[in-house]
C-alpha cells in the first residue's frame, strides 16, 4: 500500500513532532519522555485531570483530544500498541493538580497491563489514580462477558463526558463514575470494507474479497464475527444497529447521542448516507437523537469501513455532552 512517509521506523516520532509544532498553543511534549504530551494551558489547581492514551494509528485519537473540555494529557504508543508505563507516569505527574488523575483507555490486554503498572507507580508518588476501561464493542464478546469486550469508537463518548465532568469540577470518584456510567450506556458495532497496512510491514491487515465486508471488525484490523457479501448502506446500517438494539436497554422516548465513525478511508458522503438510515430507524422506534457526531473520530490508518455508536443519555450526561470542547482535532461550541 502506498504511504507518504520517510523512514518507516520514525513515523510515530515524526507525527508527534509535526503535531506539537502545528498546535503549540494547545499541546506540548514533556522533556522527560518524548511520548508524553500535555495540554499547553496549565490546568486549574484542585481540578481532576484526565489522561488518555493508546496506540498510534487511530488519529485523531488519542492525542487530538487533548484540549479544553476533554483530556489534559496523552501517552502515545507505537502503532496499534499500548504505550509503556514510563510516558503514562510522566503525563500523570505533569497533569495532577492535587485532585487526582483519571486514566481512560480501551479494554485491551496491553493497555490494561501498562496503564496498571503506571497507576501503581503513580500511587508510590502519592498521586491518586482512577482507571476506567472502555468496552463498547458489541461484536467482541457476548453480553454476559462485557468485561471482555474491547473499546472502539464509543471511547469518544467516555472522554467527552469525563472531560466535561472534570472541567465542571466533579471530584475524582465522580468523574470516574461518569466515565463508567457512559461506558455502561454505550454500544458500538463496526464494519470493515478494506484493510489498513502497518507502515513497518506494508502488508494488508486482513484479507477480504472485493464484494465482501467484515461485520464486527475491530479497529486494529482484528477479524470480525463474520464475513458477508457487501450490501447497500441502509442494509449494512441495519445489520450494525440490530445487535446494538439486542444488547442495550433502550426504549421509546429514550434519548441518545449518535456517532457514525469512519475508519480512515471511507468518505463523509458514505458516513452521512449511513447516518440518514440510523436516524430513520431511531425515529421509527421513537428514540430521540439529542446530538450527532459524523466523521473520523477514532480511525485505523487507511482502513475502509465505519462503526455506529449509540450512547443513552440522562439529564446529567445531556449536560455533559453539551459542554464545549476546544482541541486541535475536535471543536464543539
Amino acid at each position: 500500500m502506498k504511504k507518504l512517509i520517510n523512514d518507516k521506523k520514525n513515523v510515530v516520532e515524526e507525527m508527534i513532532d509535526g503535531y506539537v509544532k502545528a498546535h503549540p498553543e494547545y499541546i506540548k511534549r514533556l522533556e522527560e519522555n518524548d511520548r508524553a504530551l500535555v495540554s499547553a494551558k496549565p490546568k486549574e489547581e484542585g481540578k481532576v485531570a484526565i489522561l488518555i492514551g493508546g496506540g498510534s494509528g487511530h488519529e485523531p485519537a488519542f492525542m487530538g483530544y487533548v484540549g479544553d473540555g476533554m483530556a489534559d494529557g496523552v501517552a502515545v504508543g507505537n502503532i496499534f500498541a499500548s504505550p509503556p508505563p514510563a510516558p503514562i507516569l510522566e503525563v500523570t505527574k505533569a497533569i495532577d493538580k492535587g485532585a487526582g488523575v483519571v486514566y481512560l483507555y480501551g479494554n485491551y490486554a496491553g493497555d490494561v497491563m501498562n496503564f496498571g503498572m503506571a497507576a501503581e507507580m503513580a500511587e508510590m508518588e502519592d498521586i491518586e489514580v482512577e482507571m476506567v476501561l472502555a468496552s463498547d464493542d458489541v461484536a467482541s464478546a457476548p453480553k454476559e462477558e462485557k468485561d471482555k469486550r474491547r473499546g472502539i469508537a464509543g471511547e469518544f463518548f467516555v472522554y467527552k463526558m469525563a472531560g466535561a465532568a472534570a472541567d465542571l469540577g466533579y471530584k475524582l470518584k465522580e468523574v470516574a463514575d461518569i466515565a463508567r456510567k457512559t461506558n455502561d450506556n454505550t454500544r458500538s458495532m463496526g464494519v470493515g470494507l478494506t484493510p489498513c497496512s502497518l507502515p513497518q510491514t506494508g502488508e494488508p491487515s486482513f484479507e477480504i474479497g472485493d464484494d465482501e465486508m467484515e461485520i464486527g471488525l475491530g479497529h486494529h484490523g482484528e477479524p470480525g464475527i463474520r464475513k458477508a457479501t457487501l450490501d447497500t448502506a441502509d442494509k449494512v446500517t441495519d445489520q450494525l444497529l440490530q445487535p446494538i438494539f439486542e444488547d442495550m436497554e433502550i426504549n421509546e422516548g429514550d434519548e441518545v447521542a449518535v456517532l457514525v465513525n469512519g475508519l480512515g478511508s471511507t468518505p463523509r458522503m458514505e458516513l452521512y448516507i449511513m447516518f440518514r438510515r440510523v436516524e430513520q430507524v431511531l425515529s421509527e422506534k421513537g428514540i430521540k437523537i439529542y446530538r450527532s457526531y459524523v466523521g473520523d473520530y477514532i480511525t485505523s490508518l487507511e482502513m475502509g469501513g465505519a462503526s455506529i455508536t449509540l450512547t443513552k443519555l440522562d439529564d446529567e450526561t445531556k449536560k455533559l455532552v453539551d459542554h464545549p470542547v476546544n482541541t486541535p482535532m475536535f471543536v464543539q461550541k
Binding site: 507505537n78 500498541a81 499500548s82 509503556p84 508505563p85 490486554a109
Partner: peptide, 12 residues
C-alpha cells in the same frame, strides 16, 4: 524492551 514497545508483550 518495555519502554520501547509497551504493547502486551512489553510488560510480559
Amino acid at each position: 524492551f518495555l519502554n520501547a514497545v509497551g504493547s502486551s508483550v512489553g510488560p510480559l
